[in-house]
Nucleic acid binder design. Structure first.
Lengths: 333, 333
DNA sequence: GTGAAAGCGCTAACAG
DNA sequence: CTGTTAGCGCTTTCAC
C-alpha cells in the first residue's frame, strides 16, 4: 500500500505538494500537477482515508441502532438513511441490537470514541450506558420512528401516529364496524400510546369505548399477532374488526382467524400499520396505514447531518404524514 | 473530549503510563494505576478509537455489499454477519448498492483506503472498479449467497443450490406433478444456473424435460413473480406446479393465480425458495427450501476474519445444507 | 508555487 | 516500573 510520501519521492516534490495537487489542483503549477498525477498513477496511490479522518477528527460514519434489521419496515428506514448518508459522504455502521441493552450500549459508545460522528436510534431506549450518560450530551443524536421514553429533549422524526390511528379507526367505524379490537405493541412504547390515543379519539367521537378485553398486546412479530388473534377468539363477544399496530401482527392474526374458519373480511375485518410490501400480497390484501419509511430515514439523516455540523434544526420534532391504504381485508357494510 | 495527554497531566504521569495502565494494568504499580484510574474517571476519558485504529493501520470495519437490505433473506444474512463480527470486535459498514455499480464501487473502494479491512459481497458482481482492480487483490474478500461470475478465485459461502432445487423438483414429481414450470432469476446469475441444473437433474431422472415456455425469468421481487404467473396463465397448456427461485416471487405468483380464480394447491402447486418468515403465513403456507441465512452470514464473516488475519481457509468453498420445508401450497396427489 | 515542520491521539521500542 | 521518543499518513500553517 503506497503512501503520500512514496508518491512525493516518485514525483520529486514534497508531500504537501502532493496533498495540494490532489485536493486543490489549482494551487500547484500545471507542470508539477502532471508530475504528481503520473506518480499517483504509477504507484497506485489511494489516499488513506483512515489517516485523513483521524487528523480531521471525524470518522464520517454514523451508527444506526435498530432492534432488528430483518424487520421489513426498519430495513426500509435504513435504506432511506443510507441513501441520504451516502449522498452526504457518510457511511452507516449497522448496529443491530437484537434487543440487547449491552449491544446497544456498545454501539452507542462508538459516538464517544470517534468511531462514529453521530447516532440514529430507531428504538425507544436511551442507548448510552449509565457511565457514558454524562458524556453523551456531546454526541449528535436523532431519534426516528420511536421516541425515547421520559425524554423529549432529542430531535425526533416520526409519523403522525395518533392521527393515523384515529383515521384508521374512524374509517372502520364509518364503514359500519361496531366493535373494534386492537393488537397493540408493548405498553411502554410511546408510539403505541400515541396510536392508542388516536384510536380512543375516534371511538370517543362516536360515543364508543375500547373494551378492556379488546386490547391485546403483541411484540410486533407475526407469531405474536397470531397469538393475539387466538386470544380474541376466546372471547364470548368477538369484535367485528381488529386493528393491528403493524402489518406483521396483522398477517399473523389473519392466519389465526383463517385457521379458525373465519372469513376475512366477511366475518372479521383486519387492518394493519406500516404498509410493508407483503401487505399488498396477503389474501385478502391488507388495509393499512402507509408510513413513508424511506423519507423518515432520509429526514433523520438530514437532521443528524445538521447536528453534526452545528447547524440549528428548523424542526427538532418532525412529524411526517401517513396515508390510509384501503384494500380488501376490511369490509364495507 | 479529553485525551490521553490530559489524563496523564491530571495523574502526574506520562501518556505511556496511562496507556499501559488501561491496556496492561499489571505492568504498572498498583499505586500509579489508582492515580490513573482516578484521573480517567475525573476527566471522563474515553480512548479515541479512531486514533488507535489509525496507528494500528486497521479500521476494524468490514463492508457488506448487498443489493437491497429490505430483502428479508439478505437482512437475515446480514444479521448473521453482524453477530459474528461484533463477537470478533468488528463493525459492519452497510453497503446497500441498490443495484448501482457506482455505489458498489464506491463502497468497495473503502477496502483500499483503510476505511474497511475487508469486504463481503452478497451479489454476483466483482465490486471493484476497473482502475481499482489491480490493487483489489490485497483486500480480503468473501462472496456469500452468490458467486462472482466468471471467477472462482474467491472464497464463497453458499447453499447447495443445485441439490436443493433437485430435491424440490423431485418432491414435486414424487407427489404426482407432471408438468412443472419455473420462475427463475436473471439468467446470468450463477445460483440461478445451479438451481436450473438441479431442476434438470430431477426432471431427467424421470425422463422429463423442461419445456421452454415453462421457464419464466423474474428478478426476485414480488411484482416480477406476479408478472411471471400472468405469463404462465396465457399458456394453452398450464403446468400443474410452479417452482419459484425465491419466496417473494412465489408469493407474487400465488396472488396472480388466485386473482385468476385458481385454487392453490388444488389447481396448481406453488413452491418457493429461502423460507423467509412470511412464507409460513401465506394462504396456503408456502412449501419452500430453507436456507440457513444467519449461518451463511456467520460463516462468511468467519472466513473473512481468517483472511484478514492471514490464516489459511480450511474451506475456500463452503457449501451449507438446505432443508425441504413442506407446507400447504403443494398438493399430494 | 513549493517545502519544512508541526500536529491529530495513541502505542511501542528503547532507555533508564 | 516509568518516561522519552518516534511514528502511523495526512493536512495545514508558516516561511521562503
Amino acid at each position: 500500500m503506497s503512501t503520500i510520501r512514496m508518491v512525493s519521492k516518485l514525483a520529486g516534490v514534497s508531500t504537501a505538494t502532493v496533498s495540494r495537487a490532489l485536493k486543490d489542483p489549482e494551487l500547484v503549477a500545471p507542470e508539477t500537477r502532471l508530475k504528481v498525477m503520473a506518480a499517483v498513477k504509477e504507484s497506485g496511490y489511494r489516499p488513506n482515508q483512515l489517516a485523513k479522518n483521524f487528523s480531521s477528527g471525524r470518522s464520517y460514519n454514523v451508527v444506526v441502532l435498530v432492534p432488528n434489521v430483518a424487520n421489513p419496515f426498519f430495513s426500509r428506514v435504513i435504506r432511506g438513511i443510507e441513501q441520504e448518508a451516502q449522498a452526504k459522504g457518510y457511511a452507516i455502521l449497522l448496529g443491530d441490537t437484537q434487543g440487547s441493552v449491552e449491544r446497544e450500549q456498545e454501539y452507542a459508545r462508538m459516538g464517544l470514541t470517534s468511531q462514529a460522528d453521530g447516532l440514529i436510534q430507531l428504538d425507544r431506549r436511551f442507548p448510552f450506558s449509565e457511565e457514558d450518560k454524562a458524556l453523551a450530551a456531546s454526541v449528535p443524536f436523532v431519534n426516528a420512528c420511536e421516541r425515547i421514553c421520559n425524554d423529549s429533549s432529542y430531535p425526533v422524526v416520526e409519523l403522525d401516529n395518533r392521527g393515523a390511528a384515529r383515521a384508521m379507526v374512524q374509517y372502520l367505524l364509518e364503514t359500519g364496524h361496531k366493535s373494534i379490537a386492537v393488537i397493540s405493541g408493548p405498553a411502554e412504547s410511546p408510539i403505541v400510546r400515541d396510536r392508542l390515543a388516536g384510536m380512543q379519539d375516534a371511538l370517543l367521537a362516536s360515543g364508543l369505548e375500547l373494551a378492556a378485553e379488546h386490547l391485546v398486546a403483541g411484540d410486533f412479530s407475526m407469531p405474536s399477532g397470531f397469538a393475539a388473534a387466538q386470544q380474541l377468539l376466546q372471547l364470548s363477544q368477538m369484535p367485528d374488526a381488529v386493528f393491528s399496530m403493524n402489518d406483521e401482527m396483522a398477517i399473523g392474526a389473519m392466519a389465526a382467524f383463517k385457521a379458525h374458519g373465519l372469513r376475512i373480511p366477511k366475518d372479521i375485518s383486519v387492518a394493519g400499520f406500516d404498509n410493508i410490501e407483503f401487505s399488498g400480497y396477503t389474501d385478502p390484501a391488507l388495509t393499512t396505514i402507509d408510513q413513508p419509511a424511506e423519507a423518515i430515514g432520509r429526514q433523520a439523516m438530514r437532521a443528524l447531518y445538521q447536528l453534526m455540523h452545528q447547524q440549528p434544526l428548523a424542526q427538532p420534532h418532525l412529524v411526517l404524514p401517513y396515508q390510509l391504504v384501503i384494500r380488501g381485508s376490511t369490509r364495507v357494510c
